[in-house]
Structure formats: C-alpha cells, structure tokens
Simulated assay, not measured.
Amino acid sequence: MLDSYKGFRLLLVHAHPDDETINNGATMAMYADLGAQVTLVTCTRGEEGEVLISDLSHLASTHTDSLGEHREIELKDAMDALGISDFRFLGDKSVKFRDSGMMGTEPNNRPDVFWQADLDGASAHLVKVIEEVKPHVLVTYDEIGGYGHPDHIQAHRVAMRASELAQWKISKIYWNAMPKSVLAEGIAKMREIGSDFFGADNVDDLPFAKDDALVTAMIDGTTYVDLKMKAMAAHATQIELDGPFFALSNNLGQQVWGHEYYSLVHGKKSEPFDANGRETDLFAGVTQA
C-alpha cells in the first residue's frame, strides 16, 4: 500500500451487498491501496434478491428467508478482495432495515423494509457514521437510484439528508453515473457477438444512462480490475460467473469495469482533468481536516 492519500476519507452509501462492487469496486480498491480510509455503509442485506445458485435456492425469502445472512458473508469476502476493512450496515443492534424488493411487490409493503423507513430516522443512523468517520467525499446514487429500485432511491435520500443534518460538512458529493457514449459502445460490441446488453436495443432503453455532459469525473481503476472481478465473484448468489457482467469484461476489455464514472453534485470541480474535461480524482481540491 502507498500512502499518497493517507488522511483522506471516502464514504460510500449503497442499498444492497454487491451494489458497491459493481458501481465502485475499482475506485474503492484504488483509494484503499493508496492509503485513503474507505468506509462502506450498506443499507439492507438484500433479503429479496434472486438466488442464482440452484443449490442455495432454499435461502430465498420465499423459502427459509436466510439470504440476508448469506449475503453478509458474500459482502465480507468481497471487501476482503478489495482491501476494505471498514464496512457496516445501516442501523444498530436494535434497528435493521430489510430489502424492500421492487416497487409494487408484496415485500415492498412490509413495515420493516427500508422503503417504508422514516427518512429522518434512517438518516440519523448515517449521521452517526458521518460524525465518526468525517468523510471528505461521499458517493451514492442519483435521485432515481440509478434504475428505480426503491432501496436505491431511499439510499440516495438517506445519504443526502444525512449530509444535510450532520455537523461535519462533506467537501464533495458524487452520484454514480454511466455516460451514454460508453453504454452505446457496450451495446454495439455485444451485438457484434450476438448478445444483448441487459436486454437493451439502444442506449435510451437504459434508465441509468446519463448524458455525457452530466458525467463530471472518471476514475481509471484498470490496475485494480482483477480485484474488482474477485469481489464480483464473491457475490455469487447475485452475479453469474458466465453471465452478462463477465461477458462484458471478456468482450469489451478491462476498461469496462476499470473505468468508473461520477457526477459531482456538491463541491467544486477541480484539476486534474482528462481529455473529456472530467475530474480524474474524487479528492481533487479537497483540503484535509
């Protein structure tokens, strides 16, 4: 590990185990390796996730309802792969937020799910983390949670509300983003090999596609892609080794997972910039305190 970022602190707020690796795995591994303190807060245990391993189908919420406990183990293994030691679930010993499932489903109406949580009450738990960790940079989802999952939307709301309520003022806040130009290239490449890109015929079919002008930062974490792929493999109940995520890597090259994109929504955009005018460092312009 190098110490070039020692003293800098990054907080990420995600909805379910595996979201952090898919969106930010290379970024997390890079900054941790460079000496920054990286803290992950996961809001639910992903109890309503689909189980992709047939031998573990009994874990599903419709059977033994023990997927959440299993995904805790998957998350730990993924964080070990990325070199992250500080990862927590939102809440405390007496408060735990459950995966809400998709909008309109039966689980979404349960009183204990994250979507039904009181916003300020849930945010208060994150405020405690912010006051403890004192992050310079916060990363979370945009206002639609990337693709509309209620837990992603609620994670966004909680992260933004907590940043307002906390006495510690976070210097920069980023939302995860994916430029339309990059997604269009992915669709074209996958079409060449006779496959689709998550069922999309064109980039406008993807709710998480952002106009390039809205994407203000790109972290080049290609050096850390192998660690990201190990972390993705650790989330085995959610990500198939021969599924679309790994197919993308095989056909688009390492940059498809090593390049991670963000939109700056609070704080000042600062040098250095890449050829597209995007920040190349989430901590750019941040003064340690």
Rank of each mutant, 00 (worst) to 15 (best):
D3K: 02
D3C: 03
S4K: 12
R9I: 12
L10G: 10
L12E: 11
D18L: 10
T21I: 10
T27Q: 05
Q37P: 00
Q37L: 14
T39H: 03
E47W: 00
E48V: 14
L52M: 00
L56D: 03
L56R: 15
H58T: 11
D65M: 10
G68N: 00
E72N: 15
A78P: 14
F89Y: 14
K93A: 12
N108D: 07
P111Y: 08
F114D: 00
D118Q: 02
D120G: 12
L126R: 05
K128I: 01
Y141V: 01
Y141T: 04
G146Q: 07
M160V: 14
S163P: 05
A166D: 03
I173F: 01
W175V: 13
N176C: 11
A177K: 11
V182I: 12
A184D: 03
E185M: 09
G194N: 08
S195M: 15
F198Q: 12
A200L: 07
A200Q: 06
D205F: 05
A209D: 08
A209C: 04
A209M: 09
D211Y: 04
T216R: 10
T222K: 12
Y224L: 04
K228C: 10
M232Q: 13
A234D: 09
A236E: 15
T237F: 06
A247G: 09
Y262C: 07
N276A: 14
G277D: 07
F283M: 11
T287L: 01
Q288S: 09
